[in-house]
C-alpha cells in the first residue's frame, strides 16, 4: 500500500524539480542584477531596488504568486507550468537580491578600492574581484533560499500543475488516508531538500578560499 502511494506521489517529483529549476535560476539572474544595481547603481536605482525588495517580500509568497500568475498569463499565452514557475522565480528574486546584496557588502568597499587602484574599471572589479568573493559567501544563505523555493514549488498546485502536493491531495481524496498521503509527500520533500542542501554544502567546500580572512 505504501509502495503504491509512494510511487504515485513520487511521480510528481519531476514536475516539482522542473518548477524549481526554472524558478531558482530565474530568481538568481534577476536577484543578482538587482543586487548589483542596488549596491553600485547610484541614488535613484538604489531607491527603486529598495522599493522592489520591500514590496515583493512584504506579502505571503502564495499571494504574490497568484498576482504575478494572473498578470503573466493574462498578457502572454503560457502554460500554467511556465507562468507559475516564472512567477515563483520573480518571488524568489527579491529574497535573493537581499542575500546577494548582503554578500557583496561584506566583501567590502576596500576590495573595490584596491581593484580600482590597479586600473580596473568598476565593472571589471565587480566581475573579477567582488563577485568571486561575494558568491562564495552567499552559498550558505542561498542554500537556504534554494530549499525554500523547492518547498514553495508546491504552491503551483493551485494553478493546476500536477506536482507532489496535488498528487497527495488526490490520493487523500480517494483513499481517505490523509496521514499516509501527506506523510509520504512530506517524506519525499524531505529527501529532496536534504539532498539539495548536501549538494550545496559540497559546492561550498570545494570553492572555499583557503584561510580566508573574510571567513
Amino acid at each position: 500500500m505504501l509502495i503504491e502511494f509512494f510511487r504515485y506521489i513520487a511521480a510528481g517529483t519531476a514536475t516539482t524539480l522542473a518548477v524549481t529549476l526554472v524558478a531558482l535560476p530565474l530568481g538568481l539572474v534577476i536577484g543578482l542584477t538587482f543586487a548589483l544595481a542596488h549596491v553600485y547603481g547610484g541614488k535613484v536605482l538604489t531607491q527603486v531596488m529598495r522599493l522592489y525588495s520591500t514590496l515583493m517580500r512584504g506579502m505571503p509568497p502564495i499571494l504574490l504568486l497568484f498576482i504575478l500568475y494572473f498578470i503573466i498569463s493574462g498578457s502572454i499565452n503560457l502554460s500554467p507550468f511556465w507562468a507559475g514557475s516564472i512567477a515563483l522565480g520573480v518571488v524568489s528574486s527579491a529574497y535573493q537580491l537581499e542575500i546577494l546584496r548582503g554578500a557583496i557588502l561584506s566583501v567590502g568597499g576596500e576590495q573595490m578600492m584596491a581593484a580600482r587602484a590597479i586600473g580596473m574599471s568598476r565593472l571589471k572589479a565587480i566581475r573579477y574581484i567582488i563577485l568571486p568573493q561575494a558568491l562564495r559567501m552567499a552559498i550558505p544563505p542561498w542554500s537556504n533560499e534554494a530549499s525554500i523555493v523547492l518547498k514553495d514549488s508546491s504552491l503551483v498546485y493551485a494553478l493546476g500543475v500536477a506536482e507532489i502536493l496535488r498528487r497527495a491531495q488526490q490520493l487523500s481524496a480517494t483513499t481517505q488516508q490523509p496521514f499516509m498521503a501527506f506523510g509520504t509527500a512530506a517524506l519525499i520533500y524531505f529527501i529532496l531538500v536534504f539532498t539539495a542542501n548536501r549538494l550545496l554544502d559540497y559546492v561550498s567546500q570545494r570553492t572555499r578560499i583557503p584561510a580566508n580572512p573574510l571567513g
Binding site: E110, A114, A117, I118
Partner: peptide
C-alpha cells in the same frame, strides 16, 4: 581607470584580493 594604471598605490591594510593566490594577485 587608464590613469590609475600609471599610478601605483599601496594601502595600509594591504588589501590583497582574498580569493587569489599571491601570484594571481600580481598577475590579475
Amino acid at each position: 581607470d587608464e590613469c590609475r594604471q600609471r599610478i601605483g598605490m599601496v594601502f595600509q591594510n594591504f588589501l590583497l584580493f582574498n580569493h587569489l593566490t599571491a601570484l594571481d594577485n600580481v598577475m590579475i
